[in-house]
Amino acid sequence: MAVISYLDAISHALREEMRRDPTVFLMGEDIGVFGGAFKVTRGFIEEFGEERVIDTPISESGFTGAACGAAIMGFRPVVEFQFADFIACAFDQIVNFAAKCYYRWGIPVPVVFRGPSGGGFRGGPYHSQNPEAWFTHVAGLKVVQPSTPYEAKGLLKAAIRDNNPVIYLEHKHLYRRIREEVPDEDFEIPIGVADVKRDGTDLTIVTYGAMVHTCLGVAERLAAEGAEIEVVDLRSLAPLDKDTILASVSKTGKALVVHEAQLTSGIGGEVAAIIVESCWDALDAPVKRIGALDVPIPFSPTLEDAVLPSEGKIEATARELLEY
């Protein structure tokens, strides 16, 4: 078992799947000789050749559509968007074609759409977004967002092997910051299953992606004051793991949903609705949500920091709920 970064984990998953399955190939901008904007595919073209590590024209809708066409033939393409923000350029192909193809005529489109997402890097409106909710509203798509190297690897393998199109969002802030031991042997993390990252009895924080680490930090700090907060990492945003969410909230009686994506119409609304619909009797406090402010991500560090959910805001809201 080696200690690897989140980025290494993505890279290892891709490499192992390409070695295992000749129908897996990669498409994207600058992923070949250049090794990708974030170097996820460094060394791939040397190992797999330019027919399986395809440098495409700057043409998101074109290579996304082409990946769908290749999937019709039985391939399992993995498409890299240089930044998750640019997935919008391929929206029609993902939403109108990939998501509906199996329903419309029984042909699976097992394409994985990878996108580096998330803010905090002074990337401004086009290099910072968290677009998961654009896609969780589309029947036929699965959406995942890993928070650790172990999950990054296991979820990507599961996504590649899944017969449905999967949106795989990887948070840029985790790429090199988070490192842990990851098993060398082959493993998958099933899509649709959440993980309880920290046990607790007083409050449930439901979160995912980079916010998992922020929320764990808050939980540790409040533990020093005697509060036991349970942190549920959704991992999969479509489908959601209803059972794990409800089991936790039934135990704690209080729920806070936290995500880095914009608040309104975000995953938090859906999670809150599930909780209120299904375990009303267990609730001792209103379900609270924290997300980014409903504005585009601004470039100025002062402004961006004010837009994204902060540890201070999460801690204050958690305290408020704990006091109920």
Partner: peptide
């Protein structure tokens, strides 16, 4: 699939990219 006819999706022109991707896969 049996008759090698791809299904049409209504957004005009997006099938052109699928045809190209399919041909790309044939090449691979």
């Amino acid at each position: 699939r049996q008759r090698h006819i791809a299904s049409i999706s209504s957004p005009v022109g997006n099938g052109i990219a699928h045809a190209v991707g399919f041909a790309w896969a044939a090449r691979i």
